[in-house]
Design a protein around this nucleic acid. Structure first.
Lengths: 235, 235
DNA sequence: CCTCCCAATCTCAATTTTTGAGATATTAAT
DNA sequence: ATTAATATCTCAAAAATTGAGATTGGGAGG
């Protein structure tokens, strides 16, 4: 898209992004040093977010996330019933396979993660809900591409090599896609389609984790478990 | 505060405020008609919020709340453990008294609601988390004022009548404050203090509802139940 | 209790961004 | 294939925002 965005709004969300469990409160100085803005500007943004209800201040100069964010967060969860429905299903797959599992939908900017079950292993890979994945080098992305018409594929891809076309044909035939270090060098994933009532691809679901663990047995077990989960989600 | 706020950020949150259970998706036309802005401007704000992760679009021109809002919402809840701790306690008071209950902290703009238990009666009064209450005519506000030094009271009040001073002295002595239609004509409330480890007032908790129900027996039962809850919260 | 220092907050001229009318593009229905 | 409605983009005009410096407030130390 070419529409110039609104810089102020982007800054405001950058400020909200500074909050974490380790940092439940921020000050204008926090914003200025972390985001490189002027202290006066930072202060003005904090007051604006407070006026909007996004932040609240109980101590002079200190700001915490406010009621508006909590309410919007609850609303976001409640009007997105899909995530609520799939969460227990992907939790089960994650326990079964002992790797992380995620579900994506195709947003305007690419496959977008809508639900995650992070593996309970001491060391595993995680991804944030809301993350937009590259469409050409991820298992999710390749599944979406495999289910598109050629014109739609061209809209998403700058140039489509013969290798990629062949790969997409194979993915459509075998019913799953692999990512073997294509996106991040040490990351592996296997994704399967979730079809809607209309027979169209509505979501994709994957097991993902460190590439070294994605041997043939894990891939086989993952495809089976994911396919079972996909049927449960699509019901 | 006199700092001019940032209009763009306020508009962005006004747009986010258009979402509801009844309206899980909005378009540029929705924004334009509800907020009276130009369609092009509305469209630009939606794209900006999408770029920030606050919105997500699965259909052309339609936007839903996105992952950033869910994450911020979860974060807001998790770093505000106070609300999590008090929620079961005030739920119990609400069941006991059969009226709505809320807890407030003193923010910069006045007593700010941080947790609510809405009565399960078919008809009752509710208030939103994040709401800022007037400090001079609410039970919560009067409790806060009663626990302040005189200079602090002057900071909050334009002018302090002798009646109000007398009322605050009485409130401090009796340990609870009443609102009998002072804020909204038909609204009654009774609030008690919650003291922190340092012996200072840290929160206030109230039963509130329709004024017609706030007779002497209800007030007495409420004070008892609230005082019990206040001790549990302050522990 | 007073003083000092640091952080918070405010101001307003200079600077930059934002706006919105109109044009262009896309999608869906006929 | 055409048409209509909606979405999206452009850029000159309009308006808002920025940030250096001033002012205010709170906390710590004496």
């Amino acid at each position: 898209m070419s529409t110039p965005l609104n810089g102020s709004v982007l800054k405001a969300f950058s400020i909200l992004g500074l909050f974490s469990k380790a940092r439940p409160e921020i000050t204008a100085n926090t914003v200025a040093s972390e985001l490189g803005t002027n202290v006066a500007t930072a202060h003005r943004f904090l007051l604006t977010l407070e006026a909007a209800g996004a932040l609240v201040s109980y101590r002079r100069g200190c700001f915490a996330l406010g009621g508006t964010i909590e309410e919007l967060g609850r609303l976001a969860e409640s009007v997105n019933p899909i995530a609520t429905k799939v969460q227990p299903i992907i939790n089960e797959v994650s326990r079964d396979i002992r790797e992380s599992v995620m579900v994506c939908r195709l947003g305007r900017r690419g496959p977008t993660c809508i639900a995650v079950a992070v593996s309970d292993q001491p060391i595993s890979v995680k991804v944030d809900v809301g993350t937009v994945l590259p469409i050409d080098v991820t298992a999710h992305g390749k599944l979406w591409l495999a289910h598109m018409s050629k014109p739609d594929q061209s809209n998403w891809l700058k140039d489509t090599t013969q290798d990629l076309k062949d790969a997409l044909t194979k993915i459509k035939a075998q019913g799953f896609a692999l990512n073997q270090g294509d996106n991040e060098p040490d990351l592996g994933a296997v994704a399967v389609p979730v079809y809607g009532d209309d027979g169209k691809l509505s979501m994709t679901i994957s097991v993902f984790g460190m590439l070294s663990r994605f041997n043939a047995p894990l891939i086989e077990r993952s495809v089976a478990s994911l396919t079972h989960a996909a049927k449960a989600i699509g019901a």
